[in-house]
């Protein structure tokens, strides 16, 4: 008697798993298998650490994008915003406004977070108060942030001038805690925080509601504009966090910093199972999507399968196949 009950509950819990939420992880696992087949070095600790570490920028930005997209918005400006935030941060580091390397770096970090939040706030307010499609607004700010960066760099690059400062800041990207690189820890912290906000707080619930149906949200007493604007602010802060670990890597912002990151972030979000039309947000899926994107590039370089001219085509195909897997699992 008790046996059958156990069996029944177990069966039920398996069929209850939302396959669509699991799909990105399945795709990731398949990709791991494929990578291991292509090149045994792929599974080396160094290689995997490298790949996960450098996926940090896109992963962290994509967590913000998950909020924006879940609420029914879109932000195309994140790539340029990264360059702009990185540029202003380095200029501040070069200004010598604060004495002492640690204090200087900490102040610059706070400044970067504030700059990111303000950039996001601008996107949010123009979208909601101006009642303009987010696609257009963020396309506009994308150009603005990019141009401002190039202007600040006077056409070249903005690099940290002081070698001591550079050396002091460098470990933020390159060192680790108990073998886990700091950027990876950042991914986990940002994603956990994002998941907490999206799934466990009132604000997160409101984000989902606004993305599902703006009118229902309004009739339920939710301030739609406030919720939307805050998602853009979150996006801005995520961009700034990504910049905090981007700057120590190469110590410079250039005209190519963050180029096309917006598309990678959106792709990661969609691969992760978040609906572009809003209403469904999957933070861990997004992280998975960012890893998939980075792994595909890595596997391509490690393998000798295709000519370097065709890598883009293979990457595109793998992304489409990942989406097809997800669709077919979702349909059951």
């Amino acid at each position: 008697m008790s046996n059958t009950t156990v069996v029944q509950t177990r069966r039920r819990s398996i069929s209850d798993i939302d396959l669509r939420a699991v799909a990105p992880f399945v795709a990731l696992a398949v990709l791991f298998g494929f990578g291991a087949m292509v090149n045994p070095n792929f599974l080396g600790l160094d290689n995997l650490t490298n790949v996960v570490t450098r996926s940090a920028f896109i992963a962290i930005i994509a967590v913000g994008a998950t909020f924006v997209i879940s609420a029914g918005g879109l932000d195309l400006s994140v790539g340029s915003m990264s360059a702009f935030v990185a540029g202003t941060m380095i200029l501040f580091l070069n200004s010598g406004a604060v004495s002492g390397d640690t204090g200087m770096i900490a102040t610059a970090m706070l400044l970067a977070l504030a700059t990111g939040a303000l950039c996001g706030l601008a996107n949010g307010l123009i979208t909601t108060l101006g009642r303009i499609e987010p696609f257009i607004v963020t396309l506009g700010t994308m150009g603005i942030f990019r141009a401002l960066t190039i202007y600040l760099a006077e056409g070249g690059s903005i690099a940290i001038k002081s070698q001591e400062l550079r050396a002091a800041y460098r470990p933020i990207y390159f060192s680790d805690v108990l073998g886990v690189p700091i950027p990876v820890i950042m991914i986990l912290v940002v994603a956990a925080l994002g998941a907490f906000i999206l799934y466990r707080t009132r604000f997160g619930r409101h984000v989902t509601a606004v993305g599902s149906n703006e009118e229902v949200a309004r009739y339920s007493g939710i301030s739609v504009n406030r919720v939307r604007t805050l998602t853009y602010v979150i996006q801005g802060v995520c961009v700034a966090i990504a910049v905090l670990i981007y700057v120590p890597r190469l110590g410079a912002a250039t005209a190519t910093t963050g180029l096309l990151w917006e598309l990678q972030a959106i792709t990661a979000v969609v691969i992760g199972g978040t609906a572009l039309r809003g209403g469904v947000g999957r933070i861990w899926g997004t992280i998975c999507g960012a890893l998939i994107l980075e792994l595909v590039g890595n596997i391509m370089v490690l393998s000798d399968l295709v000519s370097e001219y065709l890598i883009g085509a293979v990457q595109g195909s793998i992304i489409i196949i990942a989406m097809l897997i997800q669709r077919s699992l979702g349909r059951r």
């Binding site: 989902t208 599902s212 149906n213 009118e215 229902v216 309004r218 339920s220 209403g279």
Partner: peptide
């Protein structure tokens, strides 16, 4: 169109307001 989030579950709808 204005009362319920059709794509969300009963719990989310119930407690939304």
């Amino acid at each position: 169109g204005k009362g319920l989030l059709l794509g969300q579950n009963l719990k989310i709808n119930l407690t939304l307001a």
